[in-house]
Design a binder for these strands. Structure first.
Lengths: 224, 224
DNA sequence: CCGTCTACATGAAATTTACACAAAAATCGG
DNA sequence: CCGATTTTTGTGTAAATTTCATGTAGACGG
């Protein structure tokens, strides 16, 4: 089913949360500090994060802020867990981008239902990892791309590049931004690599290739 | 925070919605009919629209269709509100381009959370710093300019120049200042470059081109 | 076969050049 | 002082020219 990461320093609470969520049909992975959590996050991204604010090594708010700052973790639903129940903290947490908020002590049923509600919400708000723009259809599960139901063989980078363009369809993406998203943050100097892949993409997509437009001095857009 | 427009003919529901959203930290502006709404929309564009389907003067679906047809309102998130709860209507609403759908009677908490989710989603999908001056609309995301919803093909410098003028509309910008902002600090001697681009801009903008006025011995202004 | 690089071609965009034009400012005859 | 005329100065426009981002082909390493 869905994977949930718990970040909570109190061992007892951690256990209660783990068991409760496990029983309601989720995979759970719990961490006692921010460091372990981050290490695991780099390997595998969960469907939801239950985040305690008070942690031994790092403030929960800080972790949340970082999660929201990075493109690949921005969309993961986060429930903040805290002992503080003042309205101020609630506002602050939601401002940073928590999706929900629960205060200790909390009932197990409340926890479960909030988790379930949030997962459901995030599922139908954009769980379809498949993308469609015009006649181009990208199936994340099968790692396949179709143009008018005709499968197209794309290499890894081509696929990643296309996905980058499709998930930002209509938006003029800056070259640097594309490089950052598809190749990784570190990239220096000039290179025709991106153009290269754009070219092959256009070719392989056939008629739909013309949907990739170059915006001079900026980068590329995908639009119908 | 964010501005929400409500279009709803039932006074009681309107009030409930207004208060609920106001309490959750939004600016709210509500309208009893489509006409008033449109008038206000021309002046100021909201961050989200809560749109009832059944209205005295115009069908909500029609309004939505028009919103999606116009470049500068296309990206405003819309939640459809309706008493009809049949699956058919739901599909129809989402087909036209509603971002979410809520059926009466609804819980206040549900409303608030849907609004919040949608606003956040639209926020991080692109903080569109779009500009509008008179009939000219500049969409930063798409790197596109529209005059009365008609797209205009501008080159990079033309675009930058127009943006410079638009973001200082009504202010007479000194030639040197424009050069500095659009071309960069280093620029020496006389040159017809700026005039050049002003000319092509005026041409390409068509009727709206006359909004760019020259201020002798100073520079240029953009004003309605 | 895939991804990246080098090197070069190409063409759109930016700039320069050259000149026409318009609006002030200066000049001048009355 | 006044109005007309010339001069000066700043801006508009077209065409020529240069620049530079992108397109493309082929080579090289994994």
């Amino acid at each position: 089913m869905s994977l949930i990461y718990i970040v909570e320093d109190d061992e007892n609470i951690r256990e209660i949360e783990s068991i409760a969520l496990n029983n309601s049909g989720h995979d759970v992975c719990s961490f006692g500090c921010g460091k372990d959590f981050k290490k695991e996050l780099a390997k595998r991204r969960p469907d939801l994060i239950l985040l305690d604010i008070m942690l031994p090594d790092e403030d929960g708010m800080e972790i949340l802020k970082k999660l929201r700052a990075s493109a690949d973790t921005r969309r993961i639903p986060v429930i903040l867990v805290t002992a503080k129940s003042t309205e101020l903290d609630k506002v602050k947490g939601l401002d940073i981008g928590a999706d929900d908020y629960i205060t200790k002590p909390f009932g197990v049923m409340e926890l479960i239902s909030r988790v379930r509600a949030l997962i459901r919400r995030s599922m139908d708000s954009g769980a379809s990892k498949s993308l469609r723009v015009g006649s181009i259809f990208l199936d994340s599960d099968r790692h396949m791309v179709y143009v008018d139901d005709e499968p197209k063989e794309l290499t890894f980078k081509e696929y990643e590049l296309l996905r980058c363009l499709m998930s930002n369809s209509g938006v003029a993406m800056h070259r640097d931004r594309i490089m950052e998203l598809v190749w990784g943050t570190d990239f220096e100097g000039e290179s025709r690599t991106l153009d290269m892949h754009i070219k092959t993409l256009r070719q392989k997509l056939g008629t739909a290739g013309s949907m990739i437009k170059t915006v001079r001095n900026v980068g590329y857009v995908l639009e119908e």
